[in-house]
Amino acid sequence: MRKSVIAGAGILAAVATMLLFETPAALADVPPISGSVQNFVAFDEPIPASIIPLSTRDGGEQTFEDFRGKVVVVNFWATWCGPCVREMPTLAKLQEHFADNDDFAFVIVSQDRGGWKEIARFMKRLKLDFPNSLLDDKLKLSRPMQVRSLPVVAIIDRQGGEVGRLVGGAEWDSPEAIELIQYYLDDDGGHGTS
């Protein structure tokens, strides 16, 4: 709530500035993008994320709608993708960092055609565990979300809109990455819409 007061004050200040100086003001409230996540691209407007259901490893189905109300960090990857494999351990640490935050969800979406068997072997070999793991072997989700190269990490806000993404590898356990995620967690949806 305090954030919204600040945001409201910010808007007022902006309007006041525009009236006074007749110049469009760039407000200070922008996502922190630097260091190992400097390739992150924040969208001007959230883009509604696809809600196509994908299979889970226990045989069920899940869509991003199931995480509505949470900030979802979603990683598109595949076992055949070297840069993806390399950043996987840092994503595991990121997941662990926000494990106690009920507003946060971490989802991985694999493009592997070898299916769950291949993914399970990979996880065993690298000693990793991602509870929210989805399989997109037919690219049902990747296509509408324009994921053409890997890896991609996208951030989806509480309303189900993608607010930005990073194409290519990054160190997701770095302070800059955590600061970036924290920024969207602190936000209640007012970004880019003012």
Binding site: A78, W80, C81, G82, P83, C84, Q111, R148, S149, L150, P151, V167, G168, G169
Partner: peptide, 10 residues
């Protein structure tokens, strides 16, 4: 086929 460098593009 797969093309990889710092990103992979199937």
């Amino acid at each position: 086929y797969l093309a990889c460098d710092d990103i992979c593009v199937p």
